[in-house]
């Protein structure tokens, strides 16, 4: 008797599972995409560290890491394992909760802001249209700005909670720098938004099917890229962690994996920024007649921009802090407004 009850229950559960699986295909596809994107973005980081060290070596006429594995491929692996097993030291004067929260905020915002980045045209598998983006938010670019803006909190909180003057200086610098350059970033993206008439990143790519916006908006591209380098705290704008003045800036007191999380956040932000520049100005996954898969075209553009990031780092000296602020507010911002004015006037006419 009791066995019947169990089989009936199991049957019902099975039916429910099948029913809910068929009903929730979009949900399942979404979850799989979320996991794939998160894992891919995180595993890009060691590869990027390797690329940076190799390229920097070449730029500085030396070999770079080449002992561990072929072409030094094993080096990032070894570094990751080392960082994972390092002892985590927290000084007793630190605010424990905020000290732990800060690196988590940096990595979380970096990964989440990648969720709305589309990286290829949609295609069909098993009668399901698979779209190559985590989520098609109809104001995607605003979402990226909002979430990456939240990433500053990680740096500011790290500076505040460490109870160390170098960290505090780093945190202060990063907040001031981010606010100044976010303005330029938003305003130069606005000229692209005016041209497309949409806030969705997918619409922006489809609007560039014939000609990439870098040819129509070269000034906006330049401004966006400069502001993007400043937003990701990369050299020559890496004032928040200037080694010569601030030891290591906001992450002076961090050790082991928590230090590595700041590192990860920076590199993921670099990838997101390159993807954003590709989508806004380089035509996204449009191939312009070159016979490659759209996703390969997109990846090639992103990798090229990442190399430019590294190239900039090994070419330019760090600029002075007051010049950074003057440059941001007195050069970039007026140029942005001028570009916006001209774009808007032409669009209306």
């Amino acid at each position: 008797m009791s066995l019947d009850w169990i089989t009936e229950f199991l049957n019902e559960l099975w039916d429910f599972t099948v029913q809910s699986l068929t009903d929730n295909v979009p949900l399942i596809v979404g979850s799989v995409k979320a996991i794939v994107i998160a894992v891919a973005v995180m595993s890009v980081v060691p590869a990027l560290v390797w690329l940076e060290r190799r390229l920097m070596g070449r730029f500085q006429v030396r070999l770079g890491p080449n002992r561990v594995g072929p072409f030094g491929f094993g080096q990032p692996m070894a570094d990751t394992i080392k960082l994972l097993f390092k002892e985590s030291i927290i000084q007793s004067s630190a605010d424990k909760f905020l000290f732990h929260l800060a690196p988590a905020v940096v990595v979380f915002t970096a990964i989440v802001s990648f969720a709305v980045i589309p990286f290829g045209a949609p295609f069909e598998v098993f009668g399901q249209t698979i779209e190559l983006w985590g989520a098609n938010v109809n104001s995607g670019i605003l979402f990226v700005f909002a979430i990456s803006g939240m990433g500053i909190y990680g740096m500011v909180l790290a500076g505040l909670s460490s109870n160390n003057k170098y960290s505090l200086m780093g945190g202060l610098r990063s907040s001031a720098q981010m606010i100044s350059y976010e303005l330029t970033l938003g305003l130069s993206a606005l000229s692209v938004i005016i041209l497309t008439g949409s806030l969705s990143l997918v619409d922006m790519v489809t609007a560039q099917e014939t000609i990439p916006f870098i040819l129509i908006q070269p000034l906006a591209f330049l401004l966006f890229f400069i502001a993007g380098v400043a937003e990701t705290n990369r050299a020559p704008f890496d004032l928040p962690e200037a080694e010569q003045e601030l030891v290591a800036g906001f992450h002076t007191e961090y050790t082991g994996m928590k230090f590595a999380m700041f590192f990860m956040g920076e590199y993921i932000n670099m990838v997101t920024m390159s993807a954003l520049v590709t989508l806004l100005f380089l035509g996204g996954w449009n191939t312009y007649g070159i016979p490659v898969w759209p996703i390969v075209a997109f990846a090639a553009k992103v990798v090229f921009l990442l190399c430019v990031f590294i190239w900039l780092r090994s070419t330019f000296p760090r600029i002075r802090y007051d010049r950074l602020m003057t440059f941001g507010w007195k050069v970039l911002l007026p140029l942005c407004l001028l570009n916006l004015l001209i774009t808007g006037t032409i669009k209306v006419l």
């Binding site: 104001s139 700005f145 803006g149 939240m150 202060l172 981010m178 606010i179």
Partner: peptide, 26 residues
């Protein structure tokens, strides 16, 4: 209200509160 949500985060959480924290740190 996606647009309002994004604006709420960009303006208040992203800019205004950063200034608050900046002042507290100073």
């Amino acid at each position: 209200a996606e647009f309002l949500a994004a604006v709420q985060i960009i303006v208040y959480a992203g800019a205004v509160m950063i200034l608050f924290l900046f002042i507290i740190a100073l």
